[in-house]
């Protein structure tokens, strides 16, 4: 996963390194308003089960300090805020201002306040001291990061010893026949749905392409070990459409 080159993937296209952040920002600026609806439609609501699984496995408890990186519209932040209580804290961080705004407004409207902070941050340069968080999560965000190795190293740095990193991300489908159907859905139906619901075919074409360019389960697990994690494992969900990688710092 060496990223010592001047270009990087943006979906199936190659773009200059410094361009990817802007292009990803463009995609999420475009989809922010309809992000939650689209997630429900695209996954037929299954993304809620994937996220619930993540929350369950976090083992989170009152008093914990949690980083929800690429937290977007705040699905995980909401659940974590309910669990950490007034003695704990959740930081919703995202590189995209539009997504943070949508997430913040949504959580405040739902009465989630007091133990949640919002910040705009680049995953490759986290503005937090070492050993700050008990749990760090990045759900459906890592594949959009330009330098994934650097981001995982940063997440390792800000985790407390004993802390857990959870990466929930689209991955490689393990069942060959199902993989064919999934490819057809991703490249033929998904962009059309994006056009129909969000009037934005290109962004959803990028989402499908970026999923295919993301490291598979074993590669990502190795990247976690390379970043310094003492233990790493993953759990395939829905035949590997999504994988939950967990890494521990001891």
């Amino acid at each position: 996963m060496s990223q010592n080159k001047s270009t990087i993937d943006f979906g199936f296209a190659e773009v200059p390194l410094e361009e990817k952040v802007k292009k990803v920002k463009g995609v999420f600026d475009s989809v922010a308003g309809n992000y939650d609806i689209m997630n429900d439609v695209m996954s037929l609501g299954v993304h809620r089960i994937w996220k619930r699984h993540t929350i369950e496995l976090s083992g989170i408890r009152p008093g914990h300090v949690v980083l929800d990186l690429a937290g977007g519209t705040g699905d995980l932040t909401k659940a974590f805020a309910k669990r950490v209580g007034k003695t704990g804290r959740v930081v919703l961080a995202d590189i995209n201002e539009s997504m943070v705004r949508v997430g913040r407004d949504r959580l405040i409207n739902e009465g989630i306040a007091g133990n949640v902070e919002y910040t705009i941050v680049n995953a490759e340069a986290l503005a937090f001291p070492d050993n700050t968080f008990d749990v760090c999560t990045i759900a459906f965000g890592l594949r959009n990061v330009t330098n994934k190795d650097k981001a995982i190293e940063e997440l390792y740095r800000v985790l407390k010893p004993g802390g857990q990193l959870m990466i929930l991300e689209f991955s490689k489908v393990t069942q060959p026949l199902f993989a064919k159907f999934y490819d057809f859905y991703s490249f033929n139906i998904l962009p059309k749905m994006g056009k129909l619901i969000a009037n934005d075919e290109a962004s959803y074409q990028y989402l499908a392409e970026s999923i295919r360019m993301h490291p598979d389960q074993e590669t990502l697990k190795q990247m976690m070990y390379d970043a310094g994690f003492d233990k790493a494992e993953y759990l395939n969900m829905s035949e590997g459409i999504v994988a939950l990688h967990r890494g521990w710092k001891y």
Binding site: L57, I60, R61, A81, G85, K86, G111, I112, D134
Partner: peptide
Amino acid sequence: FTHYMVSVQNHLT
């Protein structure tokens, strides 16, 4: 239990 009511889960640290 928090001021947001109750949360239930299967794992705990």
